[in-house]
């Protein structure tokens, strides 16, 4: 169990920042999709830059993780196009409707927005239906 405490703390940090950055807000997501403020673009843009720089440092210095294992980052299969575009559009529908992507859904539950268990439950159903239809969907 001790092995997992570090992930709990990492998650706590992430959830805390999600609230304080207001990215869990339906209003902020609306502001983003209306191009009315820089807020969300600044957050995502800087998050990407910091993550990119960190990956660069980790790879240049050949850093190992806390257990001494080599850190490897797997690539995504970029030969598929349909699934990313079409799946992305469907996810975008959900993001704009609920005003939350998966991380914020769970953070909002913690912040006391009880109603959010409804989209969490239907997100699980959506995941399950994808699993069922997966062999028939174009990827």
């Amino acid at each position: 169990m001790k092995d997992y405490l570090k992930y709990l703390i990492a998650g706590l940090f992430f959830g805390f920042v999600l609230v304080k950055s207001e990215v869990i807000s339906w209003f902020r997501i609306q502001e983003m999709f209306r191009f009315d403020a820089f807020h969300m673009y600044g957050i995502i843009g800087l998050a990407v830059i910091v993550a990119m720089g960190s990956i660069e440092v980790i790879q240049k210095l050949n850093l190992t993780d806390f257990n001494g294992n080599k850190i490897t980052i797997s690539s995504k299969d970029s030969s598929q196009v349909t699934r990313y575009l079409l799946g992305g559009v469907l996810f975008g529908f959900g993001w704009a409707l609920t005003g939350a992507c998966p991380g914020p859904l769970f953070t909002l539950a913690g912040a006391g927005y009880g109603i959010i268990v409804v989209p969490i439950a239907s997100a699980m159903v959506g995941t399950w239906v994808y699993g069922l239809l997966r062999p028939k969907l174009p990827h």
Binding site: G88, V118, S122
Partner: peptide, 28 residues
Amino acid sequence: LIVGGFFVGFGARYAGGCTSGHAISGLA
């Protein structure tokens, strides 16, 4: 609430990731 949540779950798996996996980790 219901259709939106469904699309979050269905779309994220179809696309192989969400905002964290694609927009942050993947772009980085």
